[in-house]
Design a binder for these strands. Sequence first.
DNA 1: TAGATTCCGGGTACGCTGTACGCAAGTAGT
DNA 2: ACTACTTGCGTACAGCGTACCCGGAATCTA
Lengths: 255, 255
Amino acid sequence: MTDAEQVNIWMRPERPARGPKPAYSRAQITEAAVRIADAEGLEAATMRRIAAEIGAGAMSLYRYVPSRDDLIMLMADRLMGEIDVEGMPSGDWRADLTRYAGELRAMWLRHPWIATAQRALVVFGPNQLRLIERVMGSLDAHVPIDENLALMAILNGYVESAARDEVSWTQEIRRSGLTESEWMARSYPYIQRLVESGEYPIFTKIVTGSRQPHLSRDDQFRYGLERILDCIAAALPADDGISDGDAPAGAAGPR
Amino acid sequence: MTDAEQVNIWMRPERPARGPKPAYSRAQITEAAVRIADAEGLEAATMRRIAAEIGAGAMSLYRYVPSRDDLIMLMADRLMGEIDVEGMPSGDWRADLTRYAGELRAMWLRHPWIATAQRALVVFGPNQLRLIERVMGSLDAHVPIDENLALMAILNGYVESAARDEVSWTQEIRRSGLTESEWMARSYPYIQRLVESGEYPIFTKIVTGSRQPHLSRDDQFRYGLERILDCIAAALPADDGISDGDAPAGAAGPR
DNA sequence: TAGATTCCGGGTACGCTGTACGCAAGTAGT
DNA sequence: ACTACTTGCGTACAGCGTACCCGGAATCTA
């Protein structure tokens, strides 16, 4: 059984029995990589750079991790470990999911590079599995597993795409190397041209409407989240939701 | 005003007045790049490969496009052009958004590499602007622009994250170079170990529950979409929704 | 029509990436 | 002490995006 036969990084043991004691560890390497990615973006976390960060030679990393892609999976799972789901499920599913959503979004904002990682969302590492148990556990008593999956997909989809939107702005600024106001100034002629063409009334509304005060990002997120949770409530059996009103008709569960 | 002062690819004219006639065009280059990315993934669409595809030298592409990143924006906007929103807004917002969502998902499935492109979602190219006008136009009569934005974010977020999930499986298979059943066989020991540990009851439910027939992907998507549309309906003034029932209470619009 | 100007295609080259390979040195099992 | 296997890591390679440069083609000016 060669190494190549392992599809999964989690199956690969960190340390064998024989030989000299390793000078580093997966956790240490992952930590260094996350630190660099947080500060300078995922593309700055090259193998050489990570190795330098911990004082190792570039090729030494490959004693711990089969490839950069696998290292990124380790990084992603490490991030999931930051999400505090202690005490879940608590019995109040709505409170649980609200807390989870907030934690997940906060984690994304702390580590915006997660948006640029390809295999970061479904890694099935230990931390993600713990999340699955805790969070999906909140709805497990109310709905069959298939429906639970569908509802979680909606929730995760909302949080992640909201976070992606917030984060992409940060990334755009970083990439351009400009300050926010410089970026604005550069874009102004284009925006102006679009508005003046008269062909884009809705776009114009967005641009000019955004001069008056908006909801804060946080409020925007919370507003959408409440909608999504209402959505989930409507999918639960009538007596399991908050039931301050009836679920809209025509929203039967799958099958 | 040097080239570097242009932040935006759309501001940069395709052709100047003087000099020899260009042998290629942005559209042709974009087309070739999309063709390669469709067949072999975005990472296969290197500058050299694209140039070879149209019979040009690698560096010639830079006469048409300032960088590979900008080319990817052109590719993304080309994809938006595939989305048929003819006749929108039609007056029936729910029909419009259903059609749009279906078209958007289908486009993602035709071009799975879009998930791996970093700046692909907000490019403000001509095709995306057309989409914005048509699709957001559907709700424009019913809600203020801020609320319209919030609801579109929810809808787009749902479709994109659903598509991302579907697509990531395809990508995983391609990356591994295995067939589906080979991949399954490789993963089996890991799954088995998790199940047998007894620590992951929900995960176990997912895995063992998935032996019986599920909803098809299409049905899954449609089910979630209906939920999201109900969600949107609830945010509209009472007489503007389909109103086969009352909107749930406690779901007032922002501000 | 002659010359100046401007832009085209693309060859060469540079710095960077992930990582295959090999080697000397260190540790455990026998 | 011998064997088996590990360790860290230097070297090397193919491939990437793209800066720079040049000969020639197209157009503008006179």
